[in-house]
Amino acid sequence: MIHILITDDQTLMRDALQTIISLEEDMKVVGMAKDGEQALELVGSLQPDLILMDIQMPGMTGIECTKRIKQLYPDTVVLILTTFSEDEYIVDALACGATGFLLKDMPGDRLIHAIRDAVSGHYMLPSVIAAKLAARISRVSQTTHTRLEAGRRKTDNPAFTTREKSIILLLLEGKTNRQIADLLIMSEGTVKNYVSSIYNKIGTNDRTLAIIALKEWLHNEPSAH
Rank of each mutant, 00 (worst) to 15 (best):
R14L: 04
I4G: 03
L125F: 08
H122R: 12
S196R: 14
N193K: 00
V29L: 07
H113L: 14
L42N: 05
H113K: 15
C65E: 02
R152H: 08
M186K: 06
D54R: 05
H219E: 15
I69H: 10
A135K: 12
Y199L: 02
C65Y: 05
L42R: 04
E41T: 08
T76D: 11
K132R: 12
K132I: 11
T162L: 04
D26I: 05
F101P: 05
G203Y: 09
T7K: 07
A150M: 10
D105V: 10
A135P: 04
V140I: 15
I4K: 04
V191S: 00
G203P: 05
C96E: 13
L42G: 06
L102P: 03
I55S: 08
I211R: 12
I185G: 02
P107F: 02
D182C: 09
G62R: 06
Y194G: 03
R68Y: 02
L183H: 09
M60V: 11
A181D: 01
D9S: 11
T146I: 11
I115L: 09
R163L: 10
I115V: 13
Q179T: 08
M32V: 07
L209G: 06
G31D: 10
Q18P: 02
T155S: 15
I129D: 10
Q10P: 01
A134M: 14
I198G: 14
